[in-house]
Amino acid sequence: MPVDIAKIKGLTSTQVLVSRKQHGENLLSYKKENSFLKIFIGIFKEPMAILLLVAIAIYLASGDFTNGIFLALAVFAISAISLYQDLEEQECTRKVEIILSAELQGD
């Protein structure tokens, strides 16, 4: 059953104060955003990334530079994509928080 948004009324100032006393402030709690460096280091703390770094080291130590360099480039590309996604996620989260923090007035 669809809701007619035009008929929905907001709370009055008095109702807002009563609601805040009963339920507390309507605030979001969130983790502090990670910096570029923390995200980058976090990527290489993943077990799969560690395994790939070890494989790169083995390739290079055994003299197979072609495969070692190719794998290193692939790991770098995947890390760059992951870093970009994490930074975009933080930006989107920040924008959603701004939208949700807007106060609606009913009276």
Rank of each mutant, 00 (worst) to 15 (best):
M1R: 12
D4Y: 09
I5H: 14
A6M: 10
A6Q: 15
A6T: 14
K7W: 00
I8F: 08
L11F: 14
L11I: 04
T12H: 00
Q15W: 05
Q15D: 14
Q15I: 01
V16E: 11
L17R: 13
L17I: 07
L17D: 13
V18H: 00
R20I: 08
K21N: 07
K21W: 00
Q22Y: 10
Q22K: 15
E25S: 11
E25K: 05
N26M: 02
S29T: 11
Y30E: 12
Y30N: 09
Y30I: 04
K31D: 15
K32G: 14
K32H: 15
E33V: 10
N34T: 07
S35A: 09
F36Q: 09
F40G: 07
F40E: 08
I41Q: 15
G42N: 14
F44G: 07
F44L: 09
E46S: 12
E46P: 01
P47S: 03
M48R: 12
A49K: 12
I50Q: 15
L51M: 07
L52A: 06
L53E: 12
A55H: 08
I56T: 08
A57H: 02
Y59E: 07
L60N: 05
S62K: 12
G63D: 01
G63I: 01
T66F: 05
T66S: 15
N67A: 13
I69E: 03
F70G: 11
A72Q: 02
A72G: 02
A74C: 05
A74G: 04
V75I: 10
V75N: 01
F76S: 13
F76Q: 06
A77V: 13
A77Q: 05
S79T: 05
I81K: 12
S82M: 06
L83K: 01
Y84P: 01
Y84V: 04
D86I: 04
D86Q: 15
L87W: 02
L87I: 12
L87S: 04
Q90C: 02
E91N: 12
C92D: 08
T93H: 11
V96F: 03
E97K: 08
S101F: 02
S101V: 02
L104P: 02
Q105L: 10
Q105R: 12
Q105W: 03
D107W: 05
D107F: 08
